[in-house]
């Protein structure tokens, strides 16, 4: 019998921008995917050393544990303001916030709108899972009409609880926004699209082309009260129709970027 030596080739490894520690996220949660995509982009762009992340309040309050770049931890909703302070003092660094829907679209609405309006050269990764995860499944500003949560036990009644906030659509209206898109993390094709968008968002910042935000439709099987597989299906069936995937603002300068 003849054996031929095949050269060993590494085809998949942990990005150096991603810490090698156990996760605190629930099994099935898509935060881990989002973290990994950001870390891969940092590696590819070789920017880890000059990147400063701003963690939010919510399930991803410990986001700083999972990245090997510098980090600060903001007050609830204030990450875009804190990131603005950092970026204005250190304009040649890469600054990004990582925020959930309660953090950004509820308590932090003012800070995110104005950061985008000013055209701050920041990158915002926005996790939209239509619920408050950390506090145990309350209604979020992005909770869908009729969706049951612990604070809308009979389903979100738009007559009394209002309508979901569509952040990508909202922010895309502002002249300061260079790149505002929505992607989803529910299947490999969409995850690859999400990574490309995150890359372009960081490129937008590095090239000084204004505010960039990638909204990522995400699952929360724990607080949605369904299995992991069901949660992926629920995202596809209910969230994507309400929050269509797409490019909401790509400024001409960003469109011309060659990545």
């Amino acid at each position: 019998m003849v054996t031929t030596a095949t050269p060993v080739q590494v085809v998949y490894k942990r990005p150096t921008s991603l810490s090698d520690i156990p996760t605190h996220y629930c099994p099935g949660c898509t935060h881990g995917i989002a973290h990994r995509l950001i870390a891969e982009v940092m590696d590819e762009m070789n920017i880890r050393d000059k990147t400063i992340g701003v963690a939010p309040v919510g399930c991803s309050v410990f986001a700083y544990n999972y990245f090997t770049c510098d980090f600060v931890e903001a007050a609830h909703g204030r990450a875009p303001a804190m990131a603005t302070g950092i970026k204005r003092v250190l304009p040649d660094r890469v600054v990004f916030t990582y925020q959930g829907d309660g953090d950004m679209a509820s308590i932090g609405m003012s800070e995110i709108i104005h950061a985008a309006g000013r055209g701050e050269n920041l990158t915002v990764i926005f996790i939209n899972n239509a619920i408050y995860g950390m506090t145990g499944g309350q209604m979020a500003p992005t909770t869908l009409p009729g969706q049951k949560t612990t604070s809308s036990p009979n389903g979100r009644d738009v007559e009394t609880m209002g309508f979901p906030m569509k952040m990508a659509e909202l922010l895309s209206q502002l002249d300061g926004a260079g790149y505002v898109v929505r992607r989803s993390l529910h299947d490999p094709k969409n995850i690859r699209m999400a990574k490309k968008a995150i890359r372009l968002a960081f490129e937008t910042q590095v090239h000084g082309l204004g505010f960039s935000m990638v909204e990522l439709l995400s699952t929360c099987n724990t607080n949605w009260g369904i299995s992991v597989l069901e949660s992926i299906q629920w995202l596809e069936d209910h969230m994507i129709p309400a929050y269509p995937i797409g490019d909401y603002k790509v400024s001409p300068a960003v469109a011309n970027l060659k990545v």
């Binding site: 303001a81 603005t84 950092i86 003092v89």
Partner: peptide
């Protein structure tokens, strides 16, 4: 509210 959090970020540098 935003101003103090900008200050917070800048102070961290």
């Amino acid at each position: 509210v935003a101003a103090i959090n900008m200050l917070y970020g800048a102070a961290c540098t």
